[in-house]
Design a protein around this nucleic acid. Structure first.
Lengths: 246, 246
DNA sequence: CGCTCGGTTGATTCGCTTCAAGCCTTGTGG
DNA sequence: CCACAAGGCTTGAAGCGAATCAACCGAGCG
């Protein structure tokens, strides 16, 4: 694969990073050299197993991916949902292995970035290291916002997830203010919000009947974004997206 | 302040980092040069306000500190609790400001590390940058474990918090397997677990009456660590503490 | 065709919240 | 030195939000 191809491949990542910081063409090129290739995963495939030794990080190009863990009561808890443009498992670069599992929530295309190359490029270009570090800090900020869901009701948790994904997907051109594709089942939603599938179903019905949002067959259709954000208590500051100049 | 004093000051941090990675004396010295001084905060003082511009990071030397946010229903949600040896607000080095508030949960002593110095030292010594990056990744792993508390019952959430703090405090010599000081109120505990103070009180009574753990007047006394961990579903892997050689 | 998976709905139960009252300790000002 | 206020803790009774248990529907598919 030529490096030009790689530059095309990392476009969604670059889009996202440039919302938060400057990034020279030379740095983009350096980042592109770390990509060794791409691979595809079928829906519901396990991508990284817990405690498995890691020698590469992954860049999500297309599709949806979840980090998940099994709770002691046997339930699955989704800890994070990744969207295209997310650099996955930068953790692995330093933590060597993960304490949780990574699974495809849809057909997914990934680029691989071997750790050797990442170490070289981040050692030689501290600004790039800081950019990737920044990216993991935004992940942590998203985690904190999910912790805040402990204090949200069922409707608030679901609404917040819809708001967050709307904003994150919009940055990479996969959502507008009215709708976006989200190929999750109600069970996935239940595992992300720690609710039962039954109650997720009832809450979705309630949101639908009130014209707030309609989630059906993998599509989120937003009826009233302001109301949705009010129910969620959503404030996009934590995603650290600098306002784009108009 | 001499640099020797600074080396003494960062001892708890060094203890913790050395549980996870190697750290040469020369690197410890470099880290020590980033410290410009120490300061003290009274209990319940706000240490960092949301959206306030940041020009330094903080190292917690003594006491307990919370990251917290106000939910849309008016309740306080504690997002993280820091213990001595934690490097705080490395976020700030890259995120420039925080989306939440940092508050002292006790009398607290902090060391200041201006960002200028941190930028210099991390640029010149990529290994140190990686070590600090690693430290923020462990913070993120702790966040994920708190997200998993969405799926825990009241007793599970409280027990998990007690287990986590026991392990983290033991690493810096402030806990043993039987007890440790934890100067929180039941309201703090409620805000960390997103339960009501009333229910925290009842749950603590239940844990006490069953000989699992007794939390009273700022002291956690563990009656049955195995039972506590079972209730919590606690597995310390996520703290990424390498086993010390015996 | 029948099986499986995702979604839907009703009836009942349960964990936690809410509301309310009261206790103890600490600190403080008359 | 005592009165009293305030914060932290405790307990009871009632209500509510989500879980549980159970049944059924519809689409896709081997």
């Amino acid at each position: 694969m030529t490096n030009d191809t790689n530059i095309a491949v990392i476009a969604p990542l670059v889009d996202r990073l440039r919302r938060s910081d400057t990034l020279s063409d030379q740095e983009v090129a350096a980042l592109a050299t770390t990509i060794s290739g791409t691979r595809d995963h079928a829906n519901r495939t396990v991508i990284v197993r817990p405690h498995e030794p890691l020698d590469r990080s992954l860049l999500l190009l297309d599709g949806f991916i979840a980090r998940q863990t099994e709770l002691s009561n046997g339930r699955r808890q989704i800890l994070a949902i990744h969207v295209p443009g997310d650099f996955l498992d930068l953790h692995g670069l330093l933590l060597k292995s993960l304490d949780h599992e990574v699974m495809a929530l849809s057909q997914a295309r990934l680029a691989e970035a071997p750790h050797d190359g990442l170490r070289t490029v981040t050692t030689e270009q501290p600004h790039l290291a800081r950019l990737l570090w920044f990216s993991t800090m935004v992940d942590a900020a998203i985690h904190r916002e999910w912790i805040a869901s402990l204090g949200r009701t069922a409707a608030g948790r679901i609404a917040h997830l819809f708001c967050e994904l709307q904003t994150r997907l919009e940055v990479v051109g996969r959502a507008d203010e009215r709708e976006y594709a989200l190929p999750l089942t109600q069970v996935d939603l239940a595992d992300a919000t720690a609710l039962t599938p039954v109650h997720v179903n009832r809450t979705l019905r309630h949101l639908r009947e009130n014209g707030i949002v309609d989630f059906r067959s993998g599509q989120v259709v937003i009826g009233d974004l302001n109301a949705l954000r009010r129910i969620a208590g959503f404030n996009p500051d934590y995603l650290y997206l600098r306002q784009l100049p108009r």
